[in-house]
């Protein structure tokens, strides 16, 4: 076993060469947050920014996975390779999860140009998993042309996906009750493309009309959000969807450096800082932090001041240490 690993190229080289096994293993390393994560992520940084990252979100029952499946097929038909990170919720009580999104994508299992990874949200809020940004980076580094992030789709505002994706697709289906209402309340703002899936259902036209009416009320921007009707089963509207994705990705790239890539990096940084601070505050034995806690408890100090004091203390000790 040891000899074999010595002979074969390192994980990084194999990842950059697009080897499935290396990508799968790299994702596991990131998911398990092992000691080598930091070096791995640093090493792939120069290779990022080539892929288009497409986010799919929408309420349960809208047919997200089935639409992603059809979208993979459409992109493969155009000769593009596709990697998918599909997120399902973890149980808040046991931490376990049944990851079933890829059941709907079974037809692509044996296609070497498609990589699908199921991720559990592991208590992370915001529709993705804590590692999703890094998983997308790994897929980018492995050379996939299109990366799909499929969110949990609890119907809430899924802002995180908005920050990570180049193109944000919000899916709804006719007859989902007040789904249009839900979209209005939360995620309409983040959509680059609105999709009404299951277009064969009788209420589809009306839903498209409602969404268009809602969009008309918004201040005009430099991107006009299209409302597309799709049927993932017979693939109606998939060509239009893929065109719209490419078009949107191109307009965003023309605006200059990859703003979504910047968003991904920024979010990664924010998460890591928060996690670091949390660990230190909870675990350090340190007179300063103990004093801040005590002051806060006895209302001798405001929360704002407390945060400042703690951050300063963390910086000091980092310098010393």
């Amino acid at each position: 076993m040891q000899d074999q690993t010595a002979e074969k190229p390192g994980l990084l080289a194999r990842l950059l060469a697009g080897q499935t096994a290396a990508l799968a293993r790299a994702i596991s390393i990131v998911e398990r947050d092992g000691p080598t994560v930091s070096a791995l992520l640093k090493a792939i940084q120069p290779h990022l920014g080539r892929a288009i990252v497409v986010g799919f979100t929408g309420p349960p029952g809208a047919g997200k996975s089935t639409l992603v499946n059809a979208f993979i097929g459409e992109m493969r038909g155009r000769g593009r390779t596709v990697a998918v990170a599909a997120v399902d919720p973890s149980s808040p009580i046991t931490g376990g999860a049944v990851l079933g999104d890829r059941i709907r994508m079974a037809e692509h299992t044996m296609d070497a140009g498609v990589f699908i990874r199921s991720l559990a949200s592991r208590g992370h809020l915001g529709g993705l998993s804590a590692s999703a940004a890094r998983v997308a980076d790994l897929m980018d580094a492995a050379g996939f042309d299109v990366i799909v992030l499929e969110t949990v789709g609890a119907g809430q505002s899924e802002v995180e996906m908005a920050e990570m994706a180049d193109v944000r697709i919000v899916i709804s289906a006719p007859g989902l009750g007040d789904d249009v209402q839900a979209i209005k309340a939360g995620i309409l703002e983040i959509a680059d493309i609105l999709v009404v899936n299951k277009s064969d259902l009788p209420l589809a036209k009306r839903t498209v009309g409602q969404l268009q009416a809602m969009l008309a009320l918004r201040a005009p921007g430099d991107w006009k959000v299209p409302v597309l009707a799709t049927n993932a089963v017979d693939r109606t509207g998939l060509c239009e969807l893929a065109d719209a994705v490419d078009h949107r990705a191109a307009t965003r790239k023309m605006k200059g450096p990859r703003d979504a890539l910047g968003g991904r990096t920024r979010r990664l940084l924010a998460q890591s800082v928060a996690k670091y601070a949390e660990h230190r505050v909870l675990n350090d034995t340190c007179a300063t932090i103990d004093a801040v806690v005590s002051d806060l408890q006895q209302a001798g100090i405001g929360l704002d001041d407390a945060i400042t004091k703690v951050l300063m203390r963390l910086c000091e000790s980092q310098d010393n240490g």
């Binding site: 149980s91 046991t94 049944v98 059941i103």
Partner: peptide, 16 residues
């Protein structure tokens, strides 16, 4: 079995 393992905190990839 998938439900058992999920309830025991594992991540289960389930297929057709």
């Amino acid at each position: 079995i998938a439900a058992y393992l999920r309830d025991a905190g594992m991540e289960v990839i389930y297929t057709n």
